[in-house]
Computed example of a mutant assay.
Amino acid sequence: MLGEECDSAAYWKKCGDEALAHGIKGVIIMGAHWDAVGDKIRVATNPKPDKSPVAYVHPSKYADYKLNPDLPTAKRCIAALQAEGFNVEPDASFNWIHDTYLILIRMFPGGCPPTTIISMNARFDPHYHVKVGATLRPFRQENYLLIGSGGAVHNLYRNKWGPMLTYRDNFAQETPPEAWALEFRQAVEDVITTNSGPKLRRGMTRLMKHPLYRDAHATDDHFMSAMFVAGAAGDVEDEGTYGKMYAEDWELVRQTSLRSNEIW
């Protein structure tokens, strides 16, 4: 998704341009590859983070992009989460992973805005992560952009790796996506586009009980960012604001991008 052009990348750029036009103060983002064990959640406070390498992507695509950790906002997020009872702590050694900086490079190629990264919790409780988003929702009123970075369908065990390994072509579609992937993808779109306010939160958490959820997500990590977004955009004050399908791509014969009125 970082190495090749695609519809989702073009849409992320549009979102970034709109965010800059509205003078955003910063970004608060939850990705799909950083989780804390036990009952904890962490907030990145490394002042000079490195980047984890991206497989199959040449370093020239990302190595020189300067990261911009927002330490003051990180402290504020920690305080807000602590006030709501979360066992949260700073992590001054965390290095950024492609699930976050990939999005930022696509959205803000001219320079990374001040950014705070929030971890998941490894128990992957959907209601826990909705509450994280709900707790940080007031930052929207201060012109922060809240982003959840994950995949609507993400099952590495069912990927078709041949085209990538042979041709380095992650978008090759030698066979169409299978019924289990298409069905769950449709369920996700239906929830996002037909629910608002608290119904959006309930609908997103309920998707983890969908009969095809475990087929679509062999692990829960890529779905928790959706819970974070539902919490951030699912308050009573958000009633009447519905998500839309803006871009979609399938990678290795699985879906990698489904975008709502927030980023996910």
Rank of each mutant, 00 (worst) to 15 (best):
M208N: 02
M208P: 03
H210M: 00
P211R: 10
L212T: 04
L212N: 07
Y213N: 03
R214S: 00
D215S: 14
A216Q: 00
A216T: 00
A216G: 02
H217V: 12
H217Y: 05
A218T: 01
A218Y: 14
A218K: 02
D220S: 00
H222T: 07
H222P: 13
F223E: 06
F223K: 09
F223L: 11
M224I: 13
S225N: 12
S225P: 15
A226H: 10
A226Y: 14
M227V: 09
M227S: 07
M227E: 14
M227C: 15
M227W: 08
M227P: 13
F228I: 03
V229N: 04
V229I: 14
V229A: 14
A230Q: 03
A230P: 02
A230R: 04
A230M: 08
G231V: 10
G231P: 14
A232L: 05
G234V: 03
V236G: 06
E237F: 08
E237K: 12
D238F: 08
D238E: 10
D238C: 08
D238Q: 04
D238K: 06
E239L: 05
E239P: 02
E239H: 04
G240F: 13
T241H: 12
T241G: 08
Y242G: 05
Y242V: 07
G243R: 03
G243P: 08
K244N: 05
M245C: 11
M245T: 03
M245V: 10
Y246A: 03
Y246G: 06
Y246H: 11
A247N: 07
A247T: 09
E248G: 05
E248L: 10
E248A: 06
E248W: 06
D249P: 08
D249M: 05
D249S: 06
D249V: 13
W250D: 08
W250K: 10
W250S: 12
W250T: 11
E251A: 09
